[in-house]
Design a binder for these strands. Sequence first.
DNA 1: GCAGCTCGGTACGGTATCAGACAAAGGGGT
DNA 2: ACCCCTTTGTCTGATACCGTACCGAGCTGC
Lengths: 238, 238
Amino acid sequence: MGEIRQTAVRNNLLRLLPTTSFTAIAMHLEFVELPRGFELSEPHEEADYAYFPETGIASIVARSPQGQHAEIGIFGRDGMTPAAVVLDAGSDPFSIFMQVQGDGYRISTALLKPLLDQDGELKSLLGRYVQALSVQGAFTSLSNAVHHIDERLARWILMCHDRTDGDEISLTHEFLSIMLAVRRPSVTTALHVLEGRKLIYSERGMMIVRDRQALEEFAKDAYGECEREYNRLLGPYH
Amino acid sequence: MGEIRQTAVRNNLLRLLPTTSFTAIAMHLEFVELPRGFELSEPHEEADYAYFPETGIASIVARSPQGQHAEIGIFGRDGMTPAAVVLDAGSDPFSIFMQVQGDGYRISTALLKPLLDQDGELKSLLGRYVQALSVQGAFTSLSNAVHHIDERLARWILMCHDRTDGDEISLTHEFLSIMLAVRRPSVTTALHVLEGRKLIYSERGMMIVRDRQALEEFAKDAYGECEREYNRLLGPYH
DNA sequence: GCAGCTCGGTACGGTATCAGACAAAGGGGT
DNA sequence: ACCCCTTTGTCTGATACCGTACCGAGCTGC
């Protein structure tokens, strides 16, 4: 605790805080490992901690009563959870968990809430992030409705790539199929398409981005809008 | 203006405000007609007014660069726009317009912003609404991904029915097809399915809900989650 | 080196939905 | 009454994706 230098922090929200706001929050931040599968918040339960990832990627997943599920957004060092704290909503109906292992800072929600009430800058910053997140959800919705699987896969890879350091993303097809709400074999064939165009390289349990530029062109209509919105609201994060 | 009695107001957010908050905002509220097609806010533009509908239904639509579009949510007397004011985000990338004609109150965003900063109750209430709205978007996303057209149509009709007074909803198939991001003839056949099961009655330019209970059962997995969340956050609105 | 698991590749038939086109029906204006 | 425009109904062929099943390939442990 205690000694966190803001310039050494990688989480974009923490970086963007004014110095005074940062020092106020920093004394309560605790560094934690975030292993794959770690639950940052459970559906309909009030979270004990807010998390600001430094590395790794978290998934936000909605589930229907009958157990259908779809990913509605992801975040890494660009974001935080839970949005419900910022909106004074208590809980939200989503599963939020680490999909790519990493680490980050946490603060008890009991401590974060009063800080939010006192500090307009903090509130505004996190408010803008919540907007960016909900815009991401909206464009996921659009993509689910109108884009083909391979484009949606490309979009998804790009979004992960934005939030990781190297060009390597390690995930199984099974997992990807859940994220995209499609069959597992559909992921396999969609990956083959991308691989055939030399946009990515893929092998058991992981893939490597080979040509990011071309990947963006392939995803074209599916990628970009919510990234532009994030940029407008909170600047670049990588 | 001046003389708006809170008990006579139908907009649920205005109704839920504590009396002091309501009187503070009420003196700036202006009653306006909201004809079909009226733009409550345009993409990437800062809105001049915030709207609190009393009747009618508004659509929130996301557009991709290449002009694909999909509805991500709707609201009527249960909500307001723009969410961006609440989140200190300036604008948002959506088209928001009246899809069923109605009326409501508006207030200049320049006046609403300072009220939000001063009044914690107002801020909390609208924050909770923003959460409800973004949850609605999330479940739209899920529905787009996993549910069949007729279920999505049923969901959509139910959501409209929640926000209107009678059992009658007047919209063309063309319009519906845009909302659901499907072909126009697909709407026609999906409506036939619902009509065949005697859940609705449909004729040129309008439809009538005949058996709401059965409609909910038909939509089953697609309907209910975000309504429960709204209820938890803001109570019933009809 | 073999057993046993997870993960990935592939195949087959089925179907929901699409793209596009066209015709019939309703409704309003002159 | 008529014309015209909007809205709805229907058809044909194509295709993206599904459900299911099965097998091979790659890791891990002993």
